[in-house]
Structures are given as C-alpha cells and as structure tokens.
Amino acid sequence: MFGLRASADQGQPDGDARTSAPIAPANLLARDVLKRRAMVSARVVADQVRCVECGICTYNCPLGIDVRRNVREGVPISDNACLTCGECVARCPRGTLRFEESSVFTGRLGEGS
C-alpha cells in the first residue's frame, strides 16, 4: 500500500501529500483509495507539438515503454500496458504528457462510491 502511494505521489508533485498537515490513518486510507482510483481511471495522453524528443519519459518508464516513440508516432501510450504510474507525466519538462480521464473505467468506479 505504501509503495503504491509513494509512486503516486512522485507522479503528482503538485499534490497535497507532502504539504498537508499530519492525517489520521483513516484519512490516509481514504486518500490512498482516491489516488488509486485516479490512477486506474486515467490514461496518459500526449500533446505531440510540445515534444522535443528529449527522452526523459522513455528513460524513466519503469516498464521500459518507449513513450517518446509513441508520442512521435501518435500511438496511445495505453496501448503498451501502461500502469499510469505518472513518472513520465511528472518528469516531462515540456508538459507534453498529461493524465486524461478514461471513460472505460469511470462508470464502473462511480458505482462503488
């Protein structure tokens, strides 16, 4: 659980995790669920015109997906079994990559809440 949370935090440096006041365990869990839900319901999409092929995304992908190549060739990153860990999104210096809500999952997740 903590491993997952840590990687999600890295993926979203502007998130509240590091700046907020100490939180009760119950809240921690709730936030973790939220994070996980965000990760599952989102996919990484690219804005090709911003890309300069520097390769930070590809270099940092824990699965070894050649994100840069997908961007250049216009192939969705979700085609490559992407975990949406957010490493590439957080590190792209040019804001090329972002999370976009995936309609595949949103409906189903909505039911549980």
């Binding site: 092929e53 520097c54 390769g55 930070i56 840069r68």
Partner: peptide, 18 residues
Amino acid sequence: PGLAYYLTGQIPEGALFS
C-alpha cells in the same frame, strides 16, 4: 533540446538518440 537535460544529469547521453 534534450542536451539541457543531459547537462543537468536528468538523462544519460544514450537517451538523447530519439
């Protein structure tokens, strides 16, 4: 453009070959 990130050490040289 990736040379800037090679200089800061964010990527190794090999990553530049896109």
